[in-house]
Structures are given as structure tokens and as C-alpha cells.
Design a protein around this nucleic acid. Structure first.
Ligand SMILES: [Mn+2]
Ligand SMILES: [Mn+2]
Ligand SMILES: [Zn+2]
Ligand SMILES: [Zn+2]
Lengths: 138, 138
DNA sequence: TCATTAATGCACTTCCATTGCATTTGTTTT
DNA sequence: AAAACAAATGCAATGGAAGTGCATTAATGA
């Protein structure tokens, strides 16, 4: 089991206090987070640093960006085995209309989508909206 | 074959010069348009009017909104038989990474998506990105 | 025509993403 | 260890798009 430090180093990301904190924050949350979520979690730090940190994480394949249709970009840790860096990871995202949280449904791969002749599909974004398990009282 | 005037009236939308122009503009374009696209097409008119016109069209089920992941909201005319008003119309959208245009693939309905137990799906947004027929040289 | 209601135009606000630049901190090289 | 270099951080500012308040203008209908 790698430490966070080792993980960051293995991805050629310099280890800094802020980066460790942000990474831990992402691990603790099991839902996708906005920049503001992170900002609110660390009164102290500057939005720009958080922004650039998350962008670094994204470039290095540690987090992926999620557009869930709320108009605010969200981010979530990539699962192990996720290959965002190379190609798009084709799991679906679920946005709860009740609690407003978005989660990765990594176990649910997106089915093959047919497109008309002449069109070339390169990647797919699939967001399902509805009521999440927590809110539906399962 | 209904005139545009009749169509608008049948949806309880007052006929105005601007609304007719915007409607015609949407018909001529076979792709989804942004507010800025409309704005640029009519030097004369005010952004707010266009904004509110398109919102009116949306409420009345004449156009539907598309979130193609570019961060800019796009709009396209509903096909006949589209029932956006009542429930979500489940066709997919294609965004071309080359020409940056987005089209409705109304003939391609979104397949049934499975979600885990406890989750209740209410609607689905599916955007395929790639190269469109015009750009691929079919 | 007059009264009522809706549409339009202008100014302004808010929110989020993004960048420039100076400063600080960390890493190499000598 | 000191100097040189490179990267990370913080602050200020910008830009783009969505949305709102309000006064004005246009359309409807009694
Ligand atoms: Mn995800
Ligand atoms: Mn469509
Ligand atoms: Zn929920
Ligand atoms: Zn194209």
C-alpha cells in the first residue's frame, strides 16, 4: 500500500503540504467536489492554488473532471485502473436532484453507442439524474 | 403545413417580429446554437431579448436546451413528436471536436441505462464527442 | 380610446473559470 | 553552504456567460 507521498511522486507531482491536504480531502469525500467545496474545507488557502492543484492532479491522471450539468465543474479521484490519461474512462455519473451530489458509478460502464454513418465517436459523457440511494431511503 | 405564426399562436406565444426572426434562424441552422450565435446573427437586437425569447421557446416546448460539455448552453428546435414539455426527450447529442458544432441525433434514442439498487433514474444526458460527418469527409 | 398586459432594451449583478505577475518555497548545481 | 534555477503559492484582475430590476414601448381587448 503506497503512501500518498509515494503516489504523488510516482506521478511526478511534487509533494507539498497543500497537495497532501487536498488529496486527503478528495479521498474522504466519496462524492465529486467543486472547487468551492475544497475552498470551504480549507479556510486558509487561496482559490488559485486549489484550482491549479486540481488541474495538476487532472493532468497527471489523479482526478477527472465531471460535467454533471449543474454548470459547475466537479472533480473526483480516479479509481485504480482508470485510464483517463490515455483514453476516456467510460463510467457513468449520477447526479442527485435532491441532495445535489454527484457520484461516479465506476462499476457501470457506458454501453456501446451507435452513431450515424460518417460520424466518428471518440468519447462519451453520460450523466443520469434522479434520486440517489441515500435520498431514496433505498 | 402550419405557418410560423400559427405555430407560435398554437403554443400561446405572442407573435412578434423578433420571435419570428429567431425562429427562422433556428430553422435555417441545422445545428444547435448558442445565445451568442443568435446575437451575432442580428446585430440590431439586445441580448436580453434573445435570452428571454429562447427561454420562452423552451418553456413552451419549441426548443430544448443542450449541455454539450463546452460550458456554453446551446439550443435546438424540437422535432415534431418531441415531448420535452412532458418528459425528457431521450435522443443523444453529438459534439464535433473539429468544427465545434453540436447536433441532435434525434433518430438515436438513448439506450436503457442501469443504475445500482437504491438509485432512481429520472433523466439522462448523453453527449458523444468526436468527428461529425461533414468533418470526417464521410 | 383607454386600460391592461406582455415584450423589449439598458444597466447592472453574480458566479465561476482563468491568467499575469510578484513572492515564496523547494531543488539542483557549483 | 551558497548561488542559481525552477516550481508552487497568493493576490489582483480579467473575461465570459447567465440572470435580474426597472423603465419604456408595443400589442391586445374591453
Ligand atoms: Mn467519475
Ligand atoms: Mn436535441
Ligand atoms: Zn441524493
Ligand atoms: Zn464537425
Amino acid at each position: 500500500m503506497k503512501t500518498i507521498e509515494e503516489l504523488l511522486e510516482s506521478k511526478n507531482i511534487r509533494v507539498t503540504a497543500m497537495r497532501l491536504l487536498i488529496y486527503k480531502f478528495l479521498v474522504e469525500k466519496d462524492v465529486a467536489v467543486t472547487l468551492s467545496d475544497i475552498e470551504n474545507a480549507f479556510e486558509k488557502s487561496d482559490r488559485t492554488t486549489l484550482y491549479r492543484t486540481i488541474k495538476t492532479f487532472e493532468e497527471k491522471g489523479i482526478v477527472h473532471q465531471i460535467d454533471d450539468g449543474t454548470g459547475i465543474t466537479k472533480y473526483a479521484l480516479c479509481e485504480k485502473g482508470c485510464n483517463c490519461e490515455i483514453e476516456n474512462d467510460l463510467h457513468l455519473h449520477f447526479h442527485c436532484n435532491n441532495c445535489n451530489e454527484t457520484v461516479c458509478l465506476t462499476a457501470h460502464k457506458i454501453p456501446q453507442i451507435k452513431v450515424p454513418d460518417g460520424f466518428v465517436a471518440e468519447n462519451v459523457n453520460l450523466v443520469v439524474k434522479g434520486i440517489c440511494d441515500k435520498c431514496s431511503g433505498h
